[in-house]
Nucleic acid binder design. Structure first.
Lengths: 335, 335
DNA sequence: TTGTATGCGTTATCAG
DNA sequence: CTGATAACGCATACAA
């Protein structure tokens, strides 16, 4: 079934069928109906490739994400996908893993697929050196690049993110205000976002005049799937430094801290306060429930897609959209 | 940059460039090199649409999944995506939600995108009536349909799943063997997979001569994101029936049970045994850790893609691949 | 081994 | 409002 078949059966030219297909208003209503009837009768759908050749677009957005099974990223992909769908776009998803070379390859690959734009989900796509980010610059010469939860200044690159610095600063400050000063900071990423969080924590400590906080900043490099292993990690730290508060860059790390406390019979929140990050489903998974920073992922996804739609229709859109995170207080804190 | 530009610069015809591009062996080595050099110099990539018109394939697989932020589905999508990537295929992902009409529309849509095959992730795509499954039959007339964690008998439909019936039967039986007979069965889905699990539980109870188990089978219809609400639900049940064991069709439901017990000061596993399902990251999230049925998702994904590759190359492949689940024993059980 | 010519199914630009 | 017809970029059967 091609557009020719339809045009024959309807007794019109292919041009008219094409107009009907694309909702042109320059078609007489009865002609339109006649064509539509044939189209529906034969359940005809235009060939995507041929259409792509004409339009040089398939209403498809490429989504790159390091690991779609990561709680945070999966949620982000989900929200984005939903927003795109409801705006008539489809998504081509690639899970790249965390290796830079592989990420570069995928980006190139997906650009060659003639997607209308590319969304990089998560801050791990942004490196620290010019060199590392060259691949993004290259791609942005072809099509718009959207960043979720990351920031990068460059033409045709749009950043949507949560101010992780401020959120973490606020979280740390509120803990300090409650008189808890020996805070263990757990993190597992040196991505853009990871650095910002850490910086927020450090500045909060410095501002309070605390100087020995560095020894309580610990990097965890294992998987976030097995929280017992995280608990082991925290237990080991506890044998070297003391702390009466934990702030983590990921909820899973905070859960590991809670598990450690439970093993040792340490009372939460009386003897140990804990704050996580992302406000994920893990927060309600433990007892007491985890206080956590909500980085309003859903709003970010919405804003991202709105910005993208604007960019694609040629509007002038903000290069950066910054949201404020918010500490959601639950049972692991008493302030 | 088109194939014409390359052919000009290389001083050959487009046919030769095309042959080089597609790895034909009927090209003289020096000609090939000359063309390749030009291609690389200008970083030329063939237009996917034009290529698709000729080849009627884009080496792309459509993946449909109800909700990519669901722990189980996200993991499944991730594994599948990885397997496909490493075999040179790309994935077009659609999150459909759980509404039947919408799922039908997406399936039709993605078929029209000329993907090489479609993977339906999760058992919620299979309904109970002929009517409900008609859309799958229709699609299978066009391209192969792969089912992950579901089963459907029809030509050109391939099912890969875990024997949930047997797994649940085993889980229930091992709890019964430990003398725990008042078992609360929590479930949240009536999908194919959900029914099979329930059936396994019921048969285990019947085989043991227990007759009043129906009143302890409870359907939870809320979100699995908020485990405190699940705990509320369990608390309400507890006010009506007694139980000293919980078996859940999802880890999250089991976690809700654990949370309920912790609120009430009920000891786990001494006074209450708990078994979850999926062996997800949630199992290590609580204290004690959750015993759970592992349905070997990774192996399923691998087998699915292998089967698919076979189908696409015209090999005769098994219509069903059935894995056996396995109870992973952790702290919430003492048998 | 290489080149020519045609088809693929649309969209879009012109005339009418 | 409608209809020819020219792109669009590539693959391939057929010729050379």
């Amino acid at each position: 079934m091609t557009i020719y078949d339809i045009s024959n059966k309807a007794g019109v030219s292919i041009a008219t069928v094409s107009r009907v297909l694309n909702g042109s208003d320059k078609v007489r209503p009865d002609t339109r109906k006649r064509v539509m009837d044939i189209i529906e009768k034969y359940d005809y759908t235009p060939n995507v490739f041929a259409r792509g050749m004409g339009l040089r677009s398939l209403q498809t957005i490429g989504i790159l994400c390091a690991d779609s099974s990561d709680l945070f990223l999966a949620k982000a992909v989900y929200y984005i996908e939903q927003e795109l769908q409801s705006n008539g776009y489809e998504s081509l998803l690639c899970c790249t893993g965390y290796n830079l070379d592989i990420k570069e390859n995928y980006l190139r690959l997906i650009v060659s697929k003639k997607v209308d734009a590319i969304i990089l989900v998560g801050s791990n796509f942004i490196g620290t050196t010019e060199e590392e980010n060259q691949y993004i610059k290259d791609a942005s010469a072809q099509i718009p690049i959207m960043l979720l939860n990351a920031s990068f200044d460059y033409p045709n690159v749009y950043s949507i993110y949560c101010d992780d610095y401020a959120s973490m600063f606020e979280a740390a400050t509120s803990m300090l205000d409650a008189g808890i000063e020996d805070i263990l900071y757990l993190y597992n990423s040196d991505s853009y976002s990871g650095k910002r969080k850490r910086c927020g924590f450090q500045n909060a400590m410095q501002k309070r005049g605390i100087i020995d906080y560095e020894k309580r900043m610990q990097f965890y490099e294992g998987s976030l799937e097995h929280m017992n292993e995280i608990a082991d990690f925290v237990a080991q730290i506890a044998s070297e430094v003391t702390f009466n508060g934990i702030i983590a860059s990921e909820d899973a790390l905070a859960i590991g801290g809670i598990k450690y406390a439970q093993r040792m019979g340490i009372r939460i929140p009386q003897d140990l306060s804990v704050i996580g990050y992302n406000n994920s489903m893990l927060t309600t998974c433990c007892t007491p429930e985890l206080s956590s920073v909500d980085n309003c992922l859903k709003s970010q996804a919405h804003q991202l897609v709105q910005t993208l739609l604007g960019v694609l229709t040629g509007e002038l859109m903000p290069a950066k959209s910054i949201f404020s995170g918010k500490l959601i207080k639950r049972g692991t804190t008493q302030f």
